[in-house]
């Protein structure tokens, strides 16, 4: 049984390999300076292109009749914190005519450009709209020419891009005893702090460890939660 199990996943071999080679050949011929790399891993072809030309490359791949990559399966980004360029923007293309698949990569971002920009592919496939908005929201990469570049998953006034590797998993919190961003509306945020929609406009109510006393009126029951905050 052991030899059968180490065979390298034959059942997942994509039938696209002949078309993948054709795709690389086509791109190398059409965009000779812009194809930086083409490699294959576990049966999947990855082509790295120059980020400034990604829209033209995608349009050519869509319009070429032999390849006809008319379906954008996925657009995502990966943050390689220690690497320069920092971000990989990854496009997964599928052709519904030939069932060919290919992965395109555009590498952007370095020390000088913390919020790098690259052209949008929504003119090629309208379905790329929300994928690019999600990348903008979670990574901070901008897409030039995007029809509606706003946050999609986080609240509109969120500060920071959560999926970056230097953003902590538990978020950027204010120090205890705050449990969520209880900063007064007319105060400026402390440097480096995230902001949530939980803001307060009540000056007396911002909890500090010294002003938490239970409410002394008789119709409210004794506050057993008072001690929870003064940890």
């Amino acid at each position: 049984m052991a030899d059968e199990q180490r065979m390298g996943a034959p059942e997942l071999a994509t039938p696209s390999n002949p078309l993948a080679a054709a795709t690389v050949a086509f791109l190398r011929e059409r965009f000779p300076d812009d194809v930086l790399d083409a490699s294959e891993y576990r049966g999947e072809m990855t082509i790295t292109v120059r980020p400034e030309r990604i829209a033209e490359v995608c349009r050519a791949l869509r319009d070429e009749p032999r390849l006809a990559y008319n379906y954008i399966a996925d657009i995502t980004a990966v943050d390689w914190l220690e690497r320069d360029p920092r971000y990989d923007v990854v496009y997964h293309l599928l052709s519904l005519a030939t069932y060919g698949v290919v992965r395109l990569k555009a590498q952007v971002g370095d020390e000088d450009t913390p919020d790098p920009e690259l052209p949008t592919v929504t003119t090629v496939w309208p379905g790329a709209d929300w994928f690019e908005r999600e990348i903008y929201d979670l990574f901070g990469l901008r897409f030039a020419g995007h029809p509606n570049q706003t946050r999609i998953l986080m609240p509109e006034d969120w500060v920071g891009h959560p999926l970056r590797k230097d953003y902590p998993l538990t978020g950027i919190h204010l120090p205890e005893p705050h449990w969520g961003g209880q900063v007064l509306l007319d105060e400026s945020l402390p440097a480096g702090m995230g902001r949530q929609t939980l803001r307060t406009n009540d000056r007396t109510g911002v909890p500090r460890s010294d002003n938490l006393t239970p409410d002394a009126s008789e119709d409210t029951p004794p506050d057993t939660h008072a001690n929870d905050h003064a940890r």
Binding site: A73, T76, V78, H92, P126, D129, W130, F131
Partner: peptide, 28 residues
Amino acid sequence: ELGFYMVSDGSAKPYRMHVRAPSFANLQ
């Protein structure tokens, strides 16, 4: 089409797990 794009950097934790959610695209 539910797609999982997984990037490994050789460590014991996934370096990036991206889920291509079908409802995300369908809702567009």
